[in-house]
Measured scan of single mutants.
Amino acid sequence: MEVRTIKVFTTVDNINLHTQVVDMSMTYGQQFGPTYLDGADVTKIKPHNSHEGKTFYVLPNDDTLRVEAFEYYHTTDPSFLGRYMSALNHTKKWKYPQVNGLTSIKWADNNCYLATALLTLQQIELKFNPPALQDAYYRARAGEAANFCALILAYCNKTVGELGDVRETMSYLFQHANLDSCKRVLNVVCKTCGQQQTTLKGVEAVMYMGTLSYEQFKKGVQIPCTCGKQATKYLVQQESPFVMMSAPPAQYELKHGTFTCASEYTGNYQCGHYKHITSKETLYCIDGALLTKSSEYKGPITDVFYKENSYTTTIK
């Protein structure tokens, strides 16, 4: 009895394709271990004539594949690729409408935090270190965002349907971005203890939790000093293409032309909904596939993004 075979390709990165001759009487799992086709788990399936010449994702289970996976995804987590594939199996079914010149995501599976993050990423200057993220990001900007969303979920250790947080998501993504040249110098002034300067680099240099107003941050924000008295913390120097200011959701007025974009969060910790506000020729609110415009805006804002380049204080 002759062994019926077909020729397929296996890959971990969709760049390096490895030619395989597979036995049609055995499952993919018996031949390769966990195997995925377009995100779908085909591990328990036997090869079919229609699979001839198709590319299958496999887990990096030998040295060659491990090197290829690390170079593309910059992670050695053995569960990463499987999590990416199972997320992709959902995100490829989502709709990605162009809204006001940006790629958004039609609401499904509690994905409003991903839509808000995706919209924000198209408006701030950011370059990702893992080629996987950078490639998928370019495709997302062009309207094909399924891979990018699935990668975000995998890097953030999230599953489809789980509630997510924009600030946490951005923080994970910033860790995989090139923020080497970003720098922030802060000064804390206390009447009792004097003053202390701190220099922050990388992710810490672009994120701040405690106030939404970048102007206020430049002037000074009140913080408790270690001595128990009130101290003032203010920005001395900022070198970065953008800054992200966050605070627990509270009524906040966004003035046209003073910011790049913002995240609105309605609801409580267990259950809520994100919308995205962007400042173009007027203010726009993007909620999944829905767009509304207004000249002014007041609502429960939790993150505001500002364009920056270089700032030095005039406070002496």
Rank of each mutant, 00 (worst) to 15 (best):
M1I: 05
V3R: 13
I6K: 10
V8R: 05
F9S: 11
F9M: 11
T10H: 10
T11W: 06
T11E: 06
L17E: 12
H18I: 12
Q20V: 14
Q20L: 09
V21Y: 15
D23E: 12
D23P: 09
M24E: 11
Q31S: 13
Q31K: 13
G33Y: 04
P34W: 14
Y36R: 05
D38P: 08
G39D: 10
V42G: 06
T43N: 10
K44V: 14
K46G: 10
K46P: 14
P47H: 03
H48V: 12
H48W: 13
S50P: 08
S50L: 11
E52V: 14
G53I: 07
K54S: 11
T55M: 14
P60R: 08
D62V: 08
D63Y: 09
L65F: 13
A69Y: 08
E71L: 10
Y73Q: 04
T75R: 15
T76Y: 07
S79V: 10
S79R: 12
L81F: 12
L81Y: 09
R83C: 08
Y84E: 03
Y84L: 06
N89S: 12
K92D: 06
K93P: 04
K93Y: 15
W94P: 04
P97R: 06
P97C: 07
P97H: 07
Q98M: 15
Q98R: 15
Q98W: 06
N100R: 08
L102F: 11
K106S: 10
K106P: 02
W107L: 02
W107Q: 06
A108F: 04
N111M: 03
T116G: 06
T116L: 04
A117Q: 02
L118H: 03
T120I: 13
Q122H: 02
Q123S: 06
I124L: 11
E125Q: 12
L126G: 03
K127L: 10
N129S: 09
P131V: 05
L133P: 03
D135P: 02
A136G: 11
Y137I: 10
Y138K: 15
A140D: 00
R141Q: 10
R141M: 11
G143D: 04
G143I: 02
E144L: 09
A146L: 01
F148G: 02
F148S: 02
F148V: 05
A150V: 02
A150C: 01
L151V: 04
L151W: 03
L151S: 03
I152C: 10
Y155C: 04
V160G: 05
G161M: 05
G164M: 02
D165C: 15
V166Q: 04
R167P: 02
T169Q: 03
M170L: 09
L173I: 11
H176V: 07
A177H: 02
L179N: 01
D180E: 10
S181E: 15
C182D: 02
R184F: 03
R184A: 11
V185N: 02
L186H: 09
N187G: 10
V188I: 12
V189I: 14
V189E: 14
C190A: 00
T192Q: 15
T192S: 14
Q195W: 08
T198Y: 10
L200A: 10
K201S: 13
V203K: 12
V203Y: 15
E204I: 02
A205I: 00
G210Q: 02
L212G: 01
S213M: 02
S213D: 12
S213H: 01
E215Q: 08
E215H: 07
E215C: 07
E215F: 05
K218A: 06
K219M: 12
K219Y: 07
P224D: 13
C225V: 00
T226D: 08
A231Y: 00
Y234R: 12
Y234V: 11
Y234N: 07
Y234M: 11
L235P: 04
L235M: 03
V236A: 09
V236D: 04
V236C: 11
E239I: 15
S240E: 02
P241D: 08
F242L: 01
F242W: 11
F242R: 01
V243D: 00
M245T: 01
P249E: 00
Q251I: 14
Q251N: 07
E253H: 10
K255Y: 08
H256R: 13
G257W: 02
F259V: 01
T260Q: 08
A262V: 02
S263I: 06
S263T: 07
E264R: 00
T266S: 11
T266L: 07
G267A: 06
G272K: 00
Y274F: 06
Y274N: 00
Y274P: 00
I277G: 00
T278L: 12
T282N: 08
L283C: 07
L283N: 02
C285G: 04
I286T: 00
D287W: 02
A289K: 06
L290D: 15
L291F: 11
T292S: 14
K293P: 14
S295E: 15
S295T: 15
E296F: 13
K298Q: 15
K298P: 04
D303C: 05
D303Q: 00
D303F: 02
D303W: 01
V304Q: 00
F305E: 00
F305Y: 04
Y306D: 00
Y306M: 01
K307I: 11
S310Y: 13
Y311V: 07
T314V: 09
T314E: 07
I315C: 15
